[in-house]
Amino acid sequence: MKKYNLDENLIAKFDNEKAIVTNSVDVFYGNHQSIFNVNLDFPRFSITALIGSSGSGKSTFLRCLNRMNDSIANVDGNIMYRDVDINSKKVNVYEVRKQIGMVFQRPNPFAKTIRDNVTFALKKHGIKDKEELNERVESSLKEAALWDEVKDNLDKSALSLSGGQAQRLCIARTITMKPDILLLDEPASALDPISTAKIEETLKNLKSKYTIIIVTHNMQQASRVSDYTAFFHSGHVLEFDKTAKIFTTPKIQATEDYISGDFG
């Protein structure tokens, strides 16, 4: 494996409104440090891709943004969202996760009906009105581009869906909470190309309403869907810029090698 200078980096800053800002985030699993001093500003209403080889820390970092690492790792640093450091112990972690939703690598629908998958969390958060629930089911399934495929089978088990459908159901389930930010952890890695294309299409449509941060190891995907790209290597962010710039004129050697496939 080639050695790169991990201290040499290029983190661009932009003037747009910020959705979430991280200040010197470090992550430790026990004594092992896996994320080093990450400072990233995520512009609002845009898609940011986190790329890098497996083990580079991109997923770990993503999970910090809605506190999904709480029980597995120690996270240091500040994560500013709406002027609140959501990495603080004092913050209500459930509210954080309502505002910042997450879709995981493997589709994980609940062992319930399609409808209940969408309404389950809504009901637990106090929405009881049937009409409203039905409306939310329809609108979120439409947003996730799944409505036409399942509208006649809403009371079927979600476990009967195909992988791609299940993943879009998971997206619908997340956006029905009306979050501010949507985190996606390699959402298409377990899917076939057609399902992947559908998910990407869905993401582009969602961009107008949500800030999306997506982890992917698929560089074509990153270049197709994202506006900004951050390149992770060995727990460091080496380069962050507009996607077009990263993919055409990378400034850092490691980024260039990774993008051209001459890496590792």
């Binding site: 309502k98 062992a111 969390a121």
Partner: peptide
């Protein structure tokens, strides 16, 4: 029951208790 189900529940802002009683236990 897969840990993915727990993550799904927690990521929706549900409490751990509701995740257990509403998702894990039925499964």
């Amino acid at each position: 029951v897969s840990h993915l189900q727990r993550e799904a529940g927690l990521s929706l802002g549900l409490s751990q208790w509701k995740t257990i009683t509403g998702i894990i236990l039925p499964a």
